[in-house]
Design a protein around this nucleic acid. Structure first.
Lengths: 231, 231
DNA sequence: GACCGACTCGTACGCTGTACGATTTAAGGC
DNA sequence: GCCTTAAATCGTACAGCGTACGAGTCGGTC
């Protein structure tokens, strides 16, 4: 008669810190642990996407029975929460960046944020729907500090933070879901030219085919920071 | 031997235009139709959210068997696509807005976009993952035109459009998923003060409790437009 | 030995989307 | 009237999902 633990998080709620890599050993005789579960879930999510993560498959990869997972984890939702947060750690700006350059630090952190999520495309669509984990809160705290250091008044701070958040989230979610294989590109091209008389302008500027996503992200971010900076 | 239709869209692919209201008659003897299916799907989505839409329940509401839906619709994904696009129609700016005020038109269209999605919160998280329907493309076309009229050069146009798109999507998705009941608010409050020494700045400015979402959206949008406007 | 908590997992249940094929209904042609 | 054909409906069935439940295993302590 094993008593399932009840509260917010199973007793195995240690820190999920940084060392979450693991080779792709399909099965192994190591004991189950939160760390292994989360790391393997991330692998699976990277490979199959959000809908591709099944508890049974996750257990298979770990060499265990499906129901064993539930000793370490409350339910599938919790797996998502943990996997998401584990992927969003931020190590801070490189040492070459001096603390004078607040704007550079903001850009660096946000580009790193976007890059982290694009490395795990499932994380982008997941993030807005879930409780903000410690790694996310840390990034917001850092952003808040840096902006303050840059001269943004307290009264304008929240608007600035949310504007940057909105921009980064929108850009990353859009990019992560725009997985353009060559076939897709061809299809989009065809579709567009077929509709060119109905949407002449966006066809002319090739809005949907413009694929310098990184550059566009950076430019838009610059514009937004221009608009937000104290004048 | 009924031949299921194959191609892109079942033969019932008429325009889904504007008149998509329907009272909440739980069952009725009217025949099934794409329009009724989509309208009822929207009702259900509004009430239960994305995960709450089940084909059986949808059929029940329509007073039909579950499998009857599949004559009109390829699969559940198609229901999502149709429901999403049906909700994003734009009727254009009011007549009081004169064509001089390009920036006002942009703001109006984008605020209407956000409002439409917040009226159907499921649509926000759905949009980035799906093919762009005609109503969305029309909005992009309009945006493109208006910006050009406002003096944005072709070379900067795509960056401007995507920046605005990113901002609006990020803001709307975030807002739509932040459904703060009073209980949630209380919980967040508690959680924050408990963590106040770890995240002092965002606690001080009450970032997560600031609930003037509409005002913040407008202010951030203004800043972004400031940054994007030709100097 | 007895006991106990930590942990694992086989089985089973209810629910999902939907393939398949039988059935009903509507519309013409004669 | 009756026959044929296509459009539309739906009952049944199946595989796959998350997970509740309870039995089973293991390694310490007394």
């Amino acid at each position: 008669m094993a008593a399932k633990r009840s509260g917010a998080q199973s007793k195995r709620s240690q820190r999920i810190g940084g060392s979450l890599q693991s080779a792709q050993e399909p099965h192994s005789e190591q004991p189950l642990s939160l760390e292994r579960i989360v790391a393997t879930a991330v692998e699976l999510l990277d490979g199959q996407g959000v809908d591709g993560l099944k508890m049974r498959q996750l257990a298979d990869r770990l060499g265990s029975g499906a129901m064993s997972l539930y000793w370490h984890v409350d339910n599938k939702e919790a797996v998502f929460d943990l996997a998401l947060d584990s992927v969003l750690e931020y190590r801070g700006p490189p040492q070459t960046v001096e603390s004078q350059d607040w704007r550079g630090e903001v850009v660096h952190m946000l580009e790193d944020w976007r890059a982290s999520m694009l490395r795990h495309p499932w994380s982008a669509s997941l993030l807005p729907r879930r409780r903000l984990g410690p790694n996310i809160l840390s990034r917001l705290e850092l952003l808040s500090n840096t902006l303050t250091r840059g001269g943004v008044a307290d009264a304008d701070l929240n608007v600035a933070i949310w504007s940057l958040w909105n921009y980064v989230m929108g850009a990353t979610i859009t990019r992560a879901n725009f997985n353009l294989s060559d076939d897709d590109m061809a299809a989009a091209q065809q579709r567009l030219t077929r509709l060119s008389e109905r949407y002449p302008t966006i066809e002319r500027t090739r809005l949907l085919l413009d694929n310098d996503w990184d550059g566009a992200f950076r430019k838009g971010l610059d514009s937004l920071l221009d608009g937000l900076s104290p004048r």
